[in-house]
Write a protein that binds this DNA or RNA. Sequence first.
DNA 1: TTGTGTTTTATTGCCTCC
DNA 2: GGAGGCAATAAAACACAA
Length: 490
Amino acid sequence: MEESNELHSEENKTSQDNNKKRKLKTPAQLMALEKFYNEHKYPTEEMKSQVAEQLGLSEKQISGWFCHRRLKDKRLSRDETCANGRQDRSSGVIQDRASGLGQDSCGSTKHGDHRYVDPREVESRRLSGHDFPAADITREYRSHYTERVGGMDNTSSESSSSLQDRFFTQNEDPYDVETSRYLAHNGVFSPINPRGTENMAYKPAGYLKVKGEAENAAITAVKRQLGRHYQEDGPPLGVEFDLLPPGAFESPIMDSVHEPSIVGNPVLRSPDISGVKGQLSPRTRYEVYNSKFSSQDSYIQQENPCIMHGFDLQEKKSSKKLRQKSTYINHTNSSPGKNSSLDIYDKSVGGTSAYNTNRKDKMRSKRGYSGRKVTSEQTEPCLHEYDRVSSPKLVQRSDYLKPKPSSSIENLDGECKAMKVYSNPIRVMMNSTDEMVVAKQARVNLPQRDYSTNSFPQLPPRKNQIKGTAMEMPSSFSEDETAETNSSVD
DNA sequence: TTGTGTTTTATTGCCTCC
DNA sequence: GGAGGCAATAAAACACAA
């Protein structure tokens, strides 16, 4: 009797604890939430309830999550603003932008920015189908807005909303830092810097059309500094590197014929990066998925690991000891095309942990994609649930761009589903001894589905090294890659 | 193994808008 | 006054170094 009472009390206690203790969202939930967040930063009650129902969460949780997510974005944005301020002072490259825009100082935490537009207004305008010039959009919501444009017009698209982030977010304005950094660094990275390229050189005409005069001034300033190195379009800036010594990045495995783009970057061959070889924890998988889904073409990631900037990797090594915040900033800097959010994703996821990628990277390198533990109970129910959800809807990804709340919510179904569907090709690619061949095969086998534009148009900018790089890929890069593949075949 | 730091989630109070 | 959002705070979960 006493035992049963104890048992009951134990159960009660456990249930109470369960109620009391916070529960981590499952990767699938997070993914869906991030995705939905990229669509609607201020969801309506109806949307919230639908999301809650779909994800098996309470509306309160959803509301809270969105609230915190917005705070997170804001915080990241603030951090980045601070970083930008420092960068401005040190480099002076973007000085006139800062001055021209009256950018917030680090101390300013409120969105008192004169460019600030009530996000709800933005949202409501979006929902009501009223477009407005992107120049009028706050930096926070630029990504939000451009996501719509992105699917149709690459001119000002950001490879992620965010994120993060960013990943991952996400909605910061890292390109101040990034452009100055990258362009000052050398122009070579411009082509692989979606934001930088978009904003600065890649498609400046389109950008200038969209962004407005204030940022135009910044661009002009950078142009001036770059002088003759700056090119409106075409090949990278006229910076040349010394040739690498023969065999400098020799890869014992790689077939230079099959993998021309990888040869130069042995790091990318490391199991850490292609950690899918190992058994991924659900969460890690989630990040990988994010990285892949966030990219314009997930296969690019495999076939163009060169997008993993060399100095990105170096930076990672040199800044291992950096704290979280600086890590985030560094990562942002080294992943210019990102909205940090989700990002970044990101944010980083992010996004979720959009900005602790260095930590995770370290972890991955040490533990081989261990990541946070996510129990199977946590992940599988949702995944299964999403698996159960049949998905004619999945194919209807075009609905995603519609302002209808339901459409976006429907996409939540596809999120998990797509995760599962997408995992196989990835694994095949990564497990194969000749990954590139298999990857190309997989790519050929999955041509119908436009993952980049429809399935995962706006994923949190996860500031993961992988996603950070992959997601930054301008669309043209995939074209280049295609061309390269073709040429290699030739 | 433990302590520390970071991130995420939940709660609460205040503010603004309708 | 109620609803929604923001900000601050606490606590749990997690990763990492010693």
